[in-house]
């Protein structure tokens, strides 16, 4: 890198010493975030792999267990997350345009929507607890295979479905909780006016994370809630 731009760009307090300029720093952070998301794909991928195999093996029992999930709550939660993705996008846009007020509003909305998602998830989990659909010694699933009223559901296989359900939605919820933490931090700094059109990398990268968590749910919703609803 030539010397002159370094001298000019050093005025930006957010520039770290080992980068030549803001552009290089921003591109490095962005690539870092995308690589991190690649690891996240593989992390959830392990569970998707388990899900795929057991669903292939025990399809009728999985369909029955899936039917016991509340499709309304699941669909509402999907919509909540999609709305939160929109508010994140708008917050990033506000930062790009240097509108602090808007930034704060959209970040606050994102937080509210994130918490709403977790709240609805909590309601769903509580009802599973009451219905004894928690894997373990007390597990009990009553019902028959969809389309075959006289064929009872295999307890073990239904339990396997709920093991995966709790592992996957639990891991997803954990990511949401971390996301809520990150966005609280962002909200505080946005309030302080830290993110400007020149420097808002944390906002941008956290946005990428939030969208990723949204995408995981976009797949979880049909895979867990909609296995076979037609009968």
């Amino acid at each position: 890198m030539a010397d002159s731009p370094i001298a000019v760009e050093h005025h930006n307090p957010a520039l770290k010493h080992h980068f030549a300029n803001m552009e290089q720093q921003r591109e490095a952070s962005s690539l870092g975030m995308w690589l991190f998301l690649a690891t996240e794909i593989m992390f959830f991928g392990g569970m998707f792999c388990a899900y795929l195999i057991y669903r292939y093996w025990y399809f009728p029992d999985f369909a029955a267990a899936s039917k016991s999930l509340d499709i309304t709550l699941g669909a509402v939660n999907t919509a909540v997350l999609i709305c939160s993705s929109l508010t994140v996008v708008m917050a990033v846009r506000a930062a790009q345009l240097g509108k602090r007020q808007e930034q704060v509003v959209y970040l606050a909305l994102t937080l509210v929507l994130g918490l709403a998602f977790l709240g609805i998830k909590g309601v769903e989990w509580t009802s599973k607890f009451k219905e004894h659909h928690i894997p373990g010694p007390t597990f009990n699933f009553e019902g028959s295979v969809p389309g075959h009223p006289d064929q009872p559901v295999d307890q073990h296989h239904a339990q396997l479905f709920f093991s995966l359900y709790f592992a996957m939605t639990g891991m997803h919820a954990l990511h949401m909780i971390i996301g809520v933490g990150i966005f609280s931090y962002l909200l505080y700094h946005a309030w302080k006016g830290k993110y400007t059109p020149e420097y808002h990398t944390p906002l941008e990268n956290s946005g990428l994370y939030w969208h990723f968590v949204d995408i995981v749910w976009i797949y979880l919703f049909p895979l867990l809630y909609l296995i076979d609803r037609k009968k």
Binding site: S85, L86, V88, V89, G207, L208, H211, F212, D214, I215, I218, Y219, F221, P222, L223
Partner: peptide, 15 residues
Amino acid sequence: VIATFKALLVVLIFM
């Protein structure tokens, strides 16, 4: 297919 289309929209435009 629908889920993948949705994911693509998020990746391409929101991200």
